[in-house]
Every structure is written in C-alpha cells, then in structure tokens.
C-alpha cells in the first residue's frame, strides 16, 4: 500500500447470518468514502459477503463467541480488507473454479461463492498464522493498477509460506 492509509474501525461478528448485511454495508460505505468507484465498492462488498458467508457456514463445528473480525484500510492504491477467523484451515485459493458452462442440469449447485470472490477483487492472499485464517481481499482504485498487479494465485508466493 502507498500513502498514509485510513482505517475502518474493526468489525467483530459473533457468527449470525443477520450480521452479514450490516457488515458488508459498512465495508461498502468505507470504500465509497475512500473514493473507490461505486461499481468497485459493490464488487468488494459482495466479495466480503462471500468470504464471511463461507466462514459462517464452514469454519466452525460449534457456535463460538467471535466468528470473524473484519479490518479494512484504504490508501492511494486501493483498499485491503482483512478477514480473520479461528476456524479450520481453509484457503479459497486451493479450490478449482466451478463448471460455469451448460444449463441447470449440467452444473453443480455449489462452488459459486469462491468463484465470485476471486472474480470480484483484484488480489486475494491467504495465510494460516497459528490458529488463525487470515484472508486479504484487495481492490485497486484503477483498472490499470489491477491489470498490472499479480493475481492472488501468484501473490500467495510472497507470504513466505
């Protein structure tokens, strides 16, 4: 990131599905306030929705006191949203894309959430740090930056993992 970043106050979700809408709206408003184009804010909001939904559906076997935290920071380059959870290790980068061709009869029911997340942001990084999954979703201000930036799959290499 470049320039002095501004930060969104941390969001903490206990894990109710009803928390997703307000949390996603908060991230979207932060992105708008940071000056990203509205369509980029919409895309980022849905990517965050998919990431949170995935955590709430799959990360935990039993209810927890705190399911996921969401931090966001914006600077001259764009926005980074970091989701952290203590659920089972899960990297969305390991999933192969779902079949997108064919009609209802030919396509699987699931798998679209991760596809949407990966399509809607410019970069995804995943790290397992101790017992924490840390997923970073980045959206750049300009298409030129996005086009020249490494994709999540390649970017994962710089985590030192």
């Amino acid at each position: 990131m470049t320039g002095k970043p501004i930060h969104m106050p941390r969001l903490r979700l206990v894990g109710q599905a009803a928390e997703i809408g307000p949390a996603v709206d908060t991230v979207r408003r932060f992105a708008l306030a940071a000056g990203l184009p509205p369509e980029s804010c919409d895309a980022l909001a849905l990517a965050v929705d998919e990431a949170v939904s995935n955590i709430l559906r799959h990360a935990y076997d039993a209810p927890v006191d705190s399911a996921v935290t969401i931090d966001a920071a914006a600077d001259g380059e764009g926005i980074e949203v970091v989701l952290a959870d203590r659920g089972r290790p899960f990297s969305p980068l390991d999933r192969s894309p779902p079949r997108l061709e064919g009609g209802a009869a030919d396509r699987p029911v699931g798998g679209l959430g991760i596809h949407l997340m990966r399509t809607l942001v410019d970069r995804i990084d995943y790290r397992r740090e101790g017992d924490v999954n840390r997923l970073t979703l980045s959206k750049y201000r300009t298409a030129a930056l996005a086009a020249g930036a490494p994709r999540g799959e390649d970017g994962a290499d710089d985590t030192g993992a």
């Binding site: 998919e50 009609g103 209802a104 396509r107 029911v109 699931g110 959430g113 596809h115 949407l116």
Partner: peptide, 13 residues
C-alpha cells in the same frame, strides 16, 4: 450473493 444463486440453481433443476 451466491446463497441466492444456489437457491435459483435448485429451483431451476
């Protein structure tokens, strides 16, 4: 979100 798409997929099937 994909949750809604999933419901539409089930309905279409």
């Amino acid at each position: 979100s994909s949750s809604g798409l999933r419901a539409l997929m089930l309905g279409a099937k």
